[in-house]
Amino acid sequence: MRLKYILPMVLAAFLVSCAMSQKELSDTEIGYRNVDLLDENSVVAKDITWSNEPAGMSKKIERSFENAPPFIPHDIEGLVPITKDMNMCVTCHMPEFAADSGATAIPASHLYDIRNKKDKGGVLHDERFNCDTCHVPLSNAKAPINNNFKADFRQDNGSEKSNLLDVLNDGIK
């Protein structure tokens, strides 16, 4: 036989034998829960509480990294579920109301159609109504592993303000 036929067969046999010799991990050997990932009955909820500070009285939390969605620092009872037709967040967080209420203003990126590169003229983009997809309330939960990540903000106010539209295409030619 010619070498061009033998080499692929040897390579295929090698790959198959390597795959067969790999130890298979069980669900309990991966992840942090150490339980069968397909058995939700064995999941025990941790004793976690969320902020119960009312809106307007809570302390703002720095962003985790540049342009990260900020945490919701206040109680959200009565504000969820959020729907396209019922979104209580916008009553305080739309830019025209935020200064008066002391809330963080919805950033320009939420009032802009990024896909079609169109300013929405101060109207919340249809794809941005579901606030709690990205923004979550802060809890007292402890991280399962230590984290020594330190955010590096390019602007002095980067921990408080988004500049996503300004930097969205950085590095793209």
Rank of each mutant, 00 (worst) to 15 (best):
R128P: 06
K4A: 11
I72E: 06
L124S: 06
I172Q: 13
D126Q: 08
E24S: 13
T133M: 11
S17G: 08
A108M: 10
N34C: 02
K23A: 13
M88P: 05
T49L: 12
V167E: 05
F149P: 01
I48L: 14
S58K: 00
G171E: 03
K46C: 09
D75A: 11
K4D: 14
S159N: 12
P73Q: 12
P137A: 09
F14Q: 04
C92S: 00
P69C: 10
A45F: 12
A143F: 08
I72Y: 12
M1R: 07
R63K: 13
S64D: 11
F149W: 11
E29G: 09
E77L: 12
K120Y: 10
K60P: 15
T91Y: 12
S42N: 13
G78N: 06
L165M: 09
E62M: 10
D36M: 01
H125C: 04
D170V: 00
A141T: 05
W50A: 06
I76D: 04
H125P: 01
L11P: 02
I145V: 15
D47W: 10
Y5G: 04
Q22P: 00
G31P: 05
F129K: 02
L124A: 03
D170A: 04
L38Q: 14
A143Y: 08
G31E: 04
P137E: 07
V167S: 03
K150C: 06
N34I: 01
C89L: 06
A143E: 08
A99W: 03
L37Q: 12
D166E: 10
W50I: 01
C131F: 09
N41C: 05
E40T: 15
G102D: 01
L15K: 01
L138M: 14
H74W: 15
N87R: 08
P144Q: 02
S139Q: 07
P8A: 09
G78A: 07
D85P: 03
K117I: 04
D152N: 12
W50C: 03
D152L: 10
I61K: 13
E53L: 13
L15R: 00
L111V: 01
P54D: 08
G122C: 07
R154S: 07
L165N: 01
A108H: 07
A105Y: 02
M86F: 12
N146D: 15
P69G: 05
I145L: 14
D27H: 12
D156N: 13
T91L: 09
L38T: 13
V80R: 12
M88S: 06
K117D: 15
P54F: 04
V44F: 04
K118A: 14
F65E: 04
K59T: 15
A55C: 06
M9D: 05
Y32N: 04
V167A: 01
Q155W: 08
P54S: 06
D75N: 15
N148P: 00
R128C: 07
K84R: 05
L111C: 08
Q155H: 11
N157V: 06
H135Q: 10
F149A: 05
I172T: 05
L15S: 03
R63E: 03
